[in-house]
Every structure is written in structure tokens, then in C-alpha cells.
């Protein structure tokens, strides 16, 4: 059994899909033609922008807003400028300048004392990876078409990758890097997909098509479990479903403490479409952050 940190509750049973996103560390190469490298960089950013725009058009609700904000950050001239300066000053290749320029901004966010903002550094790292992949002409896996009941295993599930997933086919998520405030964690909880983070060397511990059972509450992962282990988790899954069903009856009741104090239970919504969830779960109102 492996043990990580559960960040989204529930039991997931399914087959492993390894998402290999090797980190590319570009070498520094001295160049003569500064204008050419600048053009290569702008071109790569433009391609990533275009892909992100297409993604925005396919999305709706909170996800759409998140990716729109992501797109705006990508289009922020400050981000590109840091890399352009490096090309000019160090007379180096666009890929290396992107690595170094984006890293300076990533570091700025990592050092913030606000955990939410610190988590945004991973979004910028995600953009960096995409831009470098475009410069070096690397291809990516189609995340919208994974088989049903996939347990997605990867070093880190980035914001843009999460947005591309067809969540209906995802039975669970296991990663090495990720926090409770990452976009992946937020989406996993919204869509009730069990998720576990903090498994070191996760890509070496599992193979494609391994059967795994994960417990997003305890952080436990059973790779190719015994019949007993499997049965135990399947039963737990059923029990959780029953438990949730039993809680349903409280939905329509007022939230009042024993001494008669009324506590308002509100929902945090992303947009008007989420109102349906608010009404179905009988929240007393909404807040918008």
C-alpha cells in the first residue's frame, strides 16, 4: 500500500493512465540573431494563447473564468518581457530565456505568504512548460479522450491539463506534486473525484493499466489490490454512497444550534449556472469570491 495526502474524498477504482509530462530543462545556447529568438518566443506564446482561447470556448462556468484569467496572465506583457530582456542581455536562445524569465516570476509568487497566491506559481510554471514545448516542437497527449474509469497518475496535474480532462471518465487522480488549493484539487472536490497528492516518484511506482483502488479520504492507494482489499474498498464506496443519501434528509432543515442560534449556510458560486446546485442543496444564499 502507498500512502499520500488525500485532498478530495471518496473511493476510486479503476485502471492507471500514466500522464508523462517530463520536465524539459533547456540548455543555454549563445546566439547572434536576437530578433530571431524574440520572434521564436512571441510565436510560441501566440500558439499557446490560441490553444488556450480554443479551450476557453469549449468551457463554461467557473472553469471558463479560471482559464480566462489564466489566458490574461499569459497575455500579460510583464511575463514575456522578463524573457525578452534575457534574450537581449545574455544573447541566448528563446527556450532558455523562457525558462529563466518565467522562473523569476514563479519565484516571486512562491515567496508570497498567501497560500492561494503561492499556488498560482504552479499555473505560471504550467505556462512556461507549454511555451518551451512549443519552442522545441514537442507534442502532448489527448486528455479529452481517456478510457472510462481511468485513474490518472502524473507528477503534477496542471490547471490547463485539468481543464482539458473529460471528468466523466476519471475515477481518481494521483500525483506527486499538488496542494489543497491547486486548481486540480478544487475541481476534484467540485466533481467528487477522489484525489491523492504527495506520492514521491509516483511515475515509477505504477504502470499503465495497473488496477488501483484509492481512498481520497485517508490517502491510501492499493496497486493491483488483493481480492480482500478490493472488496473492502468497494464496500466502503457503497457505504459512503449510503451515508451521503442519509444526509440528504437534513438538506431541507434549518441550520440551528441546540440553543436555538441560527447559522446561515451559504454557497460559494462561480456564476449563475451554479445556482442549480445551490437550489438542489438548499443553501440559504450565495457568496461570490
Amino acid at each position: 500500500m502507498l500512502k499520500g495526502v488525500g485532498i478530495s474524498d471518496g473511493i476510486g477504482l479503476g485502471k492507471v493512465v500514466l500522464l508523462k509530462n517530463e520536465e524539459i530543462k533547456p540548455e543555454k545556447v549563445r546566439i547572434e540573431d536576437v530578433e530571431l529568438e524574440k520572434k521564436i518566443l512571441y510565436n510560441a506564446i501566440h500558439l499557446v494563447e490560441k490553444e488556450t482561447e480554443e479551450l476557453v470556448n469549449q468551457l463554461s462556468g467557473t472553469e471558463k473564468e479560471i482559464i480566462q484569467a489564466y489566458l490574461m496572465i499569459l497575455q500579460d506583457p510583464t511575463l514575456v518581457q522578463s524573457s525578452i530582456e534575457i534574450i537581449k542581455q545574455e544573447k541566448c536562445n528563446a527556450a532558455y530565456a523562457t525558462e529563466k524569465g518565467f522562473n523569476s516570476i514563479i519565484q516571486m509568487f512562491e515567496e508570497m505568504d498567501d497560500p492561494y497566491m503561492a499556488a498560482r506559481s504552479r499555473d505560471i510554471a504550467d505556462m512556461k512548460k507549454k511555451v518551451i514545448a512549443k519552442i522545441l516542437n514537442k507534442k502532448e497527449i489527448n486528455l479529452a479522450q481517456l478510457p472510462k474509469d481511468s485513474i490518472l497518475v502524473t507528477k503534477e496535474l496542471t490547471t490547463s491539463d485539468t481543464a482539458k480532462l473529460n471528468l466523466k471518465n476519471i475515477a481518481g487522480i494521483v500525483t506527486e506534486i499538488g496542494g489543497i488549493n491547486s486548481h486540480m484539487a478544487i475541481m476534484a472536490r467540485t466533481y467528487e473525484i477522489p484525489a491523492i497528492v504527495g506520492i514521491k516518484q509516483v511515475m515509477q511506482l505504477m504502470s499503465d493499466n495497473d488496477f488501483v483502488a484509492i481512498n481520497g479520504t485517508t490517502g491510501e492507494i492499493f496497486v493491483n489490490p488483493s481480492k480482500e482489499e478490493y472488496m473492502k474498498l468497494e464496500r466502503l464506496k457503497e457505504n459512503l454512497k449510503l451515508e451521503k443519501g442519509q444526509l440528504e434528509k437534513y438538506k431541507s432543515q434549518l441550520s440551528v444550534t441546540k440553543d436555538g442560534h441560527h447559522v446561515e449556510v451559504l454557497a460559494n458560486i462561480g456564476n449563475v449556472k451554479d445556482i442549480e446546485l445551490v437550489i438542489n442543496n438548499t443553501a440559504e444564499g450565495v457568496r461570490f469570491i
Binding site: D76, M108, F109, D113
Partner: peptide, 15 residues
């Protein structure tokens, strides 16, 4: 902070 840069506004961590 240049207000035309969302990145810089975010990085300012305005509480």
C-alpha cells in the same frame, strides 16, 4: 504597480 499587468497586481498580494 502597473495596473495593466494582472500578474503584477496579483504579485503585490493586496490584502
Amino acid at each position: 504597480i502597473n495596473a495593466k499587468s494582472p500578474l503584477m497586481i496579483m504579485a503585490a498580494g493586496i490584502k
